[in-house]
């Protein structure tokens, strides 16, 4: 990996981390736990489209591990990791399936799988099936927030990335 690539990826990690920290400082939109916009996913989406899956994975893992130091408890690492890995796997598959087009669809599927991964961890930790009663709410919210972050990524791709590419 060249120095230039490493620096670029570090820059993306910082962007994702900043978005994540700012978002976690915002008050929750709805009183149901586990529902948030997931704006840091914008960076993952952009990387998935413009860089290789391995590099995306690297940035994602770095962001999750670092975010625990900045804004979370040790327990949330497990949730974030499970959600992040599920999300990445699903988004990678969908992105390949759609050959990089329709980023917002990729984002929606990613958000749904992110929620599914977190529910699974919650189930494994508490070992109560009652956590799956949350699934309908999480599917609805995941679709909406996934669409939102997907559109953010779409417009970032369209208007921001050309400038970033030119300068790097």
């Amino acid at each position: 990996m060249s120095i230039k690539k490493m620096t670029t990826l570090a820059l993306y990690t910082v962007i994702a981390l900043t978005i994540f920290v700012i978002e976690s400082a915002l008050p929750p939109l709805v009183p149901i736990p586990g529902i948030k916009l997931g704006l840091a996913n914008i960076v993952t989406l952009l990387l998935l489209k413009n860089y290789s899956p391995g590099e995306t994975f690297l940035v994602l893992i770095m962001r999750i591990v670092l975010s625990v130091f900045f804004a979370g408890q040790a327990m949330s690492l497990l949730y974030s990791l499970a959600g992040g890995l599920f999300c990445f796997a699903a988004m990678y598959a969908v992105n390949r399936f759609l050959s990089g087009k329709f980023l917002f669809v990729t984002s929606i599927i990613g958000a749904l799988f992110h929620n599914a991964g977190q529910l699974l961890v919650a189930f494994l930790i508490t070992s109560t099936t009652a956590v799956f009663l949350y699934a309908p709410y999480l599917i609805l919210s995941g679709t909406i927030t996934g669409l939102f972050t997907g559109l953010c990524a779409h417009f970032a791709q369209k208007y921001l990335l050309p400038h970033m590419k030119r300068n790097t």
């Binding site: 929606i108 599927i109 699934a135 309908p136 599917i139 609805l140 679709t143």
Partner: peptide, 11 residues
């Protein structure tokens, strides 16, 4: 996704 949403609203 829409089928999933409809299902969850129903639930």
């Amino acid at each position: 996704v829409m089928v999933l949403c409809a299902l969850s609203v129903f639930l």
